[in-house]
């Protein structure tokens, strides 16, 4: 475990907590893409099936459990408790455009053609595109609440820190996982545009709004 990896995990956890706190405090999930959150719940579910088959560490097990809980609670708040505040109109990204290619690719390009491994690969590919419905929603409405941008910032930071983690692991352990690295680079690229707006607008106290 290196510093990039632990900071990456903390950023990831912080992002999910920020989102939960935002929804809980405002009693509203306005501006949040329910579709992205459902995709993240699918990502964690299909990836963490190894909770039943492999044990790595207490840390690993606890974090996986916490991530799963956060994802499911978020989905419940959006589609259950606060569904009246959910902006269904603007959450119009077509999920089949993501799910069909991602499913196909996970069958074609994986490390081992076994159910658990295909599901793991599927989760990695899906995670790299799962934020697109959220980014699509922001581009459609042209604005995002500041707290939503903090959520996206920490989610993007997690991806960037994981890239540093992989470089570190490659240098020190000679370990690398091509599927994770390529997907990680792809998903980090999706955040670049957002990072630019975050630094130039949100950090200067302005609301994120697109012209």
């Amino acid at each position: 475990m290196n510093i990039f990896r632990i900071l990456g995990d903390v950023s990831h956890l912080l992002a999910m907590i920020i989102l939960l706190v935002k929804i809980w405090r405002s009693k509203s999930c306005a501006g949040i893409s329910g579709k992205s959150q459902v995709l993240f719940a699918i990502v964690f579910t299909s990836r963490y099936l190894d909770l039943f088959t492999n044990f790595f560490s207490i840390y690993n097990t606890v974090m996986k459990f916490v991530f799963l809980m956060c994802a499911y609670i978020t989905v419940y708040l959006i589609y259950g408790k606060f569904r009246k505040t959910f902006d269904n109109e603007n959450d119009s990204f077509r999920l089949e455009f993501l799910l069909i290619p991602v499913t196909g690719l996970s069958f074609l390009e994986n490390q081992s053609f076994t159910p658990l491994e295909i599901l793991w690969t599927f989760s990695i590919y899906l995670e790299s595109v799962a934020i697109l419905p959220q980014l699509f929603m922001i581009s459609k409405t042209g604005e995002a609440e500041t707290i939503t941008t903090h959520y996206l910032f920490f989610l993007g930071l997690y991806h960037a820190l994981y890239l540093a983690n992989w470089i570190w692991r490659y240098q020190t352990e000679n370990y690398y996982d091509q599927i994770a690295v390529v997907s990680g680079v792809v998903q980090t690229i999706f955040y670049c545009d957002f990072f630019y707006l975050y630094v130039t607008k949100v950090l200067k106290g302005k609301k994120l709004s697109l012209p």
């Binding site: 990896r5 995990d9 990831h12 990836r47 190894d50 088959t53 492999n54 790595f56 690993n60 974090m63 996986k64 991530f67 490390q111 081992s112 076994t114 491994e117 793991w120 994981y162 983690n165 370990y175 996982d177 994770a180």
Partner: peptide, 10 residues
């Protein structure tokens, strides 16, 4: 070569 499960990251 036998496949070894190495996915120790989150």
């Amino acid at each position: 070569r036998e496949f070894v499960y190495t996915h120790d990251e989150l």
